[in-house]
Simulated scan of single mutants.
Amino acid sequence: MTDETVELGVQLLERLEHEELSLAECVDRLETITSNPTTTRTILDTAEMRGVISREDGIVRPTGGRFLQFQSEVIEKQGEFTCKRCGASISTGYFMRLQAGEHGPFGSSCIRKVTGRES
């Protein structure tokens, strides 16, 4: 587990457009960064400690309200990619620009799912 991975996860949670998610849905988003359960728990604990999320009874509520701007903070690149969420081969990759670094690639439907633009 690296500090960069934890920071990337916290920043991802900070920018989600969901009012609330189940813990399973939240872990689904974090699995795009890490599949290590200890790292996932550290990300959730750090995010809660910083006030980025609140957790209660298996529900996670992002408190940031700072959503990603699709024109400036989600960039599109052409190439041969594998989506970080679903594993599909994609020719257009969408990457999130977070302060801790770039996160992606994602396909067009997975980027909307990960950020909370669609359920």
Rank of each mutant, 00 (worst) to 15 (best):
V27R: 14
S72G: 04
E31W: 06
L13H: 07
T38D: 12
S22L: 11
C26P: 02
R97A: 09
G107P: 07
Q99K: 13
E31F: 03
T42Y: 09
R66G: 06
A100R: 08
V10T: 06
V6F: 05
T32S: 14
R29V: 11
C26S: 14
C86S: 07
V60K: 02
T82G: 05
R112F: 02
R50D: 12
D3Q: 13
K113V: 15
T46I: 05
C83I: 11
E73D: 03
P105I: 00
F67W: 14
T2C: 06
A24D: 15
G104E: 10
G107H: 03
P62G: 09
I53G: 02
Y94N: 01
G79C: 06
S119F: 08
T2V: 07
A100W: 08
D57V: 09
G9W: 02
G93M: 06
G64T: 10
R85D: 13
S54I: 03
R85I: 03
V27G: 02
Q11D: 04
T38W: 00
V27D: 02
G58Q: 11
S35D: 14
Q11N: 01
G104I: 00
T82H: 10
T42M: 13
M96N: 03
I75K: 00
E80D: 15
E14R: 15
K77P: 03
R117S: 11
E80L: 11
R41L: 13
E20L: 02
Q71Y: 07
T42S: 14
F70N: 04
G101F: 08
T46V: 12
G116L: 10
L68Y: 01
R61E: 12
Q78I: 10
Q71G: 00
I59A: 06
R112L: 09
C83F: 04
G87W: 08
V114I: 15
T115R: 12
T2K: 13
V27S: 00
G79N: 10
R50Y: 12
A47E: 08
T92R: 12
S108H: 11
G104W: 04
R61H: 01
A88M: 11
V52K: 03
P105Q: 06
E102V: 07
C83D: 14
V10Y: 08
R117A: 07
T2L: 13
T39K: 09
C83N: 05
T40G: 00
A24Q: 14
T5E: 15
K113N: 03
E56I: 01
K113Y: 15
R41H: 12
V27K: 12
R15W: 08
P105C: 09
I53L: 02
Q11M: 05
R29T: 03
G51H: 06
S22M: 01
F106W: 00
V60H: 01
D3C: 06
T40E: 14
E4Y: 04
R117K: 06
S72E: 14
V52S: 04
T5Q: 14
L16I: 05
S89L: 12
G79V: 08
T39C: 14
F106D: 10
P105D: 09
T42L: 13
A100D: 04
L23Q: 04
Y94R: 00
G9S: 10
